[in-house]
Design a protein around this nucleic acid. Structure first.
Lengths: 150, 150
DNA sequence: TTTAAATCGGACATTCTTATCCAATTTAAA
DNA sequence: TTTAAATTGGATAAGAATGTCCGATTTAAA
């Protein structure tokens, strides 16, 4: 139900969140998240345009989050890539329905609303420092890159 | 987030539910639901294979529900056309995760679970006889077809 | 028996999603 | 200053979703 692209974007964001202080090149993120590198490149460009990540070109360049992981929710990422479409008017465009939705579309929309709510209340920070100890984090390794000084 | 095909299938099922006693030809359903007739034809064929509707070929033929509207939920329709994919194992296939999900995928899956729950608890019957009077039904007209005896 | 209304299935067209590749550009380090 | 690492944007391609068309078949009614 969520697109592949959304899945990739979320993985990348979680990866970058767990690598907070560093700048990560696409190829590293791609390896850590098992996303096709050339496609991930496009996804990250979109996230950049959406203002969720920042890029640094050239040697020692790459991507990093533009905000603190506490400031970005799952919903922010989803909406940046493929917005959740709420149903505001009857898709049949029946004149008899103003802004009212028929029972079917009211149900569909409230399911979407519930998803929005759930995604909107979880930040990247919560994902990387998870309260439940029984379930391990995705072990995004985020290898500390050589800084040249070690 | 839901595909166009799911939307069409749900409209058609609601239409047929509100036309319960009759057999409706594709063109009639298509007009009532504003779905492209030739595409709806394919959708109804799928719903037929999934056992949700029955078809009757030839003159005076068409489609009708195979079960009582109280017996079919929104989820049944969705799953017949484009099943909601629950996340059972980490999509990254990390060996360190057995059947455990990382925090990200646990959240995504529980959102899917919530949608499943919501869709699974609403029947077609509930959609056509809606409790809330303030919001009108989609006025699927379902014209009573001439029976030749009137 | 003929005719017309219907579904059925296959072939096809179009558009969107997913994915790849490469030349151009930027930039830090050697 | 040169080099290599990196993003950027464009072109392109494969596949899936969406949509159309038509001949074959079925079936009730005239």
């Amino acid at each position: 139900m969520l697109s592949q692209t959304v899945e990739y974007a979320l993985r990348a964001m979680v990866y970058l969140a767990s690598a907070e202080e560093e700048v990560c090149p696409v190829d590293e993120v791609a390896e850590g998240t098992k996303v096709p590198p050339s496609y991930l490149s496009k996804v990250l460009q979109n996230l950049n345009r959406a203002g969720l990540v920042q890029s640094k070109r050239g040697l020692q360049g790459g991507y990093h989050l533009s905000k603190d992981p506490t400031e970005t929710t799952i919903l922010d990422v989803v909406n940046a890539v493929e917005p959740i479409e709420r149903i505001h008017t009857c898709p049949l465009e029946l004149k008899s329905h103003g802004t009212n939705l028929c029972p079917l579309h009211r149900r569909l929309d409230s399911a979407m609303a519930e998803v929005e709510r759930a995604f909107g209340t979880t930040t990247l920070q919560e994902l990387i420092t998870d309260p439940s100890p029984s379930v391990p984090l995705c072990d995004f390794p985020c290898p500390k890159r050589s800084t040249g000084a070690e």
